[in-house]
């Protein structure tokens, strides 16, 4: 008996909840929207599917969602976002699972494997996307303020002891980063005769947290960092000047003794997708924006807590001229 009462109660509660919610909801009819979608689909262009890889950093996310939003809203493409690391993304070109990598920082090994000529030709370089990657050695803002001379590598040894931690075995600690990134810091340190030891944070999150805490608690920290990166908006950081980059000075990983070059970021796409053509392909080909553009969208995503799609839509709305240039 008791059971039955409870069972009936549950049903009643569910039913009441249903109708209450139905009443106070926006009341939009599912059928109407379905019809609208059907007619919309019939009138859509020939863009088709666009499989956009989303590599795990916010700047990338900003670019990917802006391109995706334009493709979806202006061109009627069906955009599928795929959260993937770089290696996996490249593997997906050949299988049709990935069409576009919108921000590539340079992967010689993957290029060798998947570009035409040396590899299977499943991937194609679609040119620069306008962003420029700046990689280098950074210190938190407070340190640069209190010890301005630290921004010259020649003075680093003077402060080496201050950078020592439980991990660095008596030397100064240099915080290496996520293994995905191109890093020559071990070589640079030894070739410049610096009294430092590289300790790898192992991930972007770890590096960012370290810089945040160092700035907040006025701790000594020097490490590998890069731009564009949204966190620059929140945590002031200064780049340490290494011997300037010259052509060829990073060719042999063992003898590197210079700063990282500025890296124009590239778009990489699936060859078969590019060959099919269509408005989506043209959009990606034409897409080009600046570091400031990207930082703006990235800041909306991180600091303002907007979803990537919302942030992208906002930017697209506010920058019609740039968007129009891409659609051509």
């Amino acid at each position: 008996m008791r059971k039955m009462r409870i069972g009936t109660k549950l049903t009643a509660v569910a039913a009441v909840a249903a109708f209450v919610l139905a009443g106070c909801g926006d009341g939009g009819s599912i059928d109407e929207q379905t019809e609208a979608n059907e007619s919309g689909a019939a009138g859509a262009g020939d863009c088709g599917d666009l499989n956009m890889a989303v590599n795990p950093w916010v700047g990338y996310e900003a670019s990917a969602y802006v391109v995706g939003t334009v493709a979806q809203e202006k061109l009627g493409c069906k955009v599928n976002y795929k959260d993937l690391k770089e290696d996996v993304s490249w593997q997906g070109f050949g299988t049709g699972e990935v069409d576009v990598v919108i921000e590539d920082w340079g992967h010689p090994d993957l290029e060798k494997k998947f570009f035409d000529g040396s590899g299977d030709g499943s991937a194609t370089d679609f040119g620069e996307n306008g962003n420029v990657g700046i990689i280098g050695w950074y210190v938190p803002g407070w340190l640069a303020e209190e010890h301005p001379d630290i921004l010259d590598w020649n003075n680093l040894n003077k402060y080496a002891k201050e950078f020592a931690t439980s991990e660095s075995g008596g030397k100064g600690q240099f915080l290496g980063s996520d293994p995905s990134y191109v890093q020559f810091d071990e070589a640079i340190i030894s070739n410049l005769g610096l009294d430092f030891k590289v300790v790898f944070s192992g991930g972007e999150a770890a590096t960012i947290t370290a810089f945040e805490q160092a700035q907040k608690n006025k701790e000594w920290l020097i490490g590998y960092f890069w731009e564009p990166q949204y966190v620059h908006a929140e945590v002031p950081m200064e780049k340490v000047a290494l011997p300037p980059y010259e052509d060829g000075c990073q060719d042999d990983p063992a003898t590197v003794d210079c700063d990282y070059p500025e890296t124009p970021l590239k778009k990489i796409v699936s060859t078969s997708w590019a060959d099919e053509g269509g408005p989506g392909v043209d959009l990606v080909k034409n897409f080009n924006w600046t570091n400031d553009d990207q930082n703006l969208v990235a800041a909306w995503i991180t600091s303002d807590g907007m979803s990537p799609a919302d942030a992208a839509a906002k930017w697209v709305e506010e920058n019609p001229d740039k968007v129009d240039a891409w659609i051509g």
Partner: peptide, 20 residues
């Protein structure tokens, strides 16, 4: 009895957007 209730809920969730 509860199954009927569940089916009503399914029907409602196929009809009203806020329940879907």
């Amino acid at each position: 009895v509860t199954a009927v209730g569940a089916l009503v809920a399914v029907w409602a969730s196929r009809t009203y957007i806020s329940l879907a």
